[in-house]
Design a protein around this nucleic acid. Sequence first.
DNA 1: CGTTGATTTGACCCTAATCAACTTAGGTGG
DNA 2: CCACCTAAGTTGATTAGGGTCAAATCAACG
Lengths: 244, 244
Amino acid sequence: MSDETKRTAGPAIYAVDPWVPGKPRVRHQLLSDDERALLAKIASIVRFNKGEHIYRDGDAADAVFNIISGVVITYHALAAGEHVTSFLYQGDLFGLSEEGHYSNAARAATSVVAYKIPLPALRRILDNNADLDVDLIVKLCEDLRGAQRHALLLAQKRAATKLAMFLELQEHLQLARGEPSLEIFLPMDRSSIAAYLGLTLAALSRAFRTLVSKQIISSRNRHHIKILDRNVLNRLADARSNET
Amino acid sequence: MSDETKRTAGPAIYAVDPWVPGKPRVRHQLLSDDERALLAKIASIVRFNKGEHIYRDGDAADAVFNIISGVVITYHALAAGEHVTSFLYQGDLFGLSEEGHYSNAARAATSVVAYKIPLPALRRILDNNADLDVDLIVKLCEDLRGAQRHALLLAQKRAATKLAMFLELQEHLQLARGEPSLEIFLPMDRSSIAAYLGLTLAALSRAFRTLVSKQIISSRNRHHIKILDRNVLNRLADARSNET
DNA sequence: CGTTGATTTGACCCTAATCAACTTAGGTGG
DNA sequence: CCACCTAAGTTGATTAGGGTCAAATCAACG
């Protein structure tokens, strides 16, 4: 991954093959160097501080974003709290809109650097590059699978199961990004994870404690988790067996 | 809708504009008459009895399906039960696969008549019709929104809230299909609804009873629901206010 | 080194899961 | 058309797990 990134500058969209638990796969760059150069010309680089909003639900959508570094959270604001729909990492594309308005909000979970690609210019390029259509389809398929996996996670009844699935997902993504994976790095804070898992902060905290006390995981600190017993974690996450 | 259907035979793919609660919208046909005729040539018509499998998770994917009539359930089989991902109606397209294998299972919830479109032929047509690419993108966007809405539903903590959201969704879809909507028709059985909502059968049953006893809905029979108090139902479903 | 927000923990309550008995709705065969 | 059978759904009793609220820690930052 880093090779490719270094050779060419400009927006990068990566696709990871769909995740079948247990099969580590590598992600590949969707855009050709030419395409990236083309996009780079119309893109500007923007920065956001941790916690800063990139856009809010309902804002007029004038651009899409492509993450260079940092982590972005997309979410819906509800009176009952937030519903986090995804965590986005380097290479992820976000901000696709509907009828000119963003349909969710996006916020920087860490400090973020991203390409900002104005919509009109993007549209012009898309019209002239049939190949990018295919890329868009691949990207949408990936998002769709992500959303379905999220739904599967949310359908789980036990907090520990949700957390186990989440940890395995994060580890998988980390691996696919080519990062070292001796331990799982969770850049986002607890409340965002809770909002992603459909749990309260307290329930999530207890779920962590449960896994730690059963020696299934250990945590160096709040953002660094190590898997001690992969078998048990797997059994918890796989929704195929039950155990306390 | 029925006009269009009558005028031209052949596969029909409808797209409903994204659902913003409260705004009823109509869906429109994505395919031109020419496209439908083209697809009709390579499609065959297949029938399934209620409960029959259309394909199973992991089966070699050789075709996609387009529903002419009836209701299809897509789901994942888990040891802990089934996870229902969607209910599909007339005009819906399903069976898009990944690497030549279906990634979920599909089963007829009622007796079903559908077009079966062989994959190789479809691919040939797609290659020659750039327009269909766009249709595919629209379709994927819709599926994506559906999955995200499902996730939002599953993230709700109270059973009555989930049921309220489900009922409003069904009513909306029914309206969009142009069917009479004095009452909501739920063709699928309770266990499928429960599996879609991430509830047990018992919990779902109780949620129904709660809404009925509070005069929020009434049911002529297990498949026909009428909304009595739309305001309260809305407040329950909107995840913006809380009440018992 | 103190202040503030983030996280953990505890006590208690409430809802949904469980398990099981019971009822209903559909089909079947006479 | 009816009695019977079975699968589907409902209801009850009980329990476990997560929500809620509040107090206690912890950690980052100035």
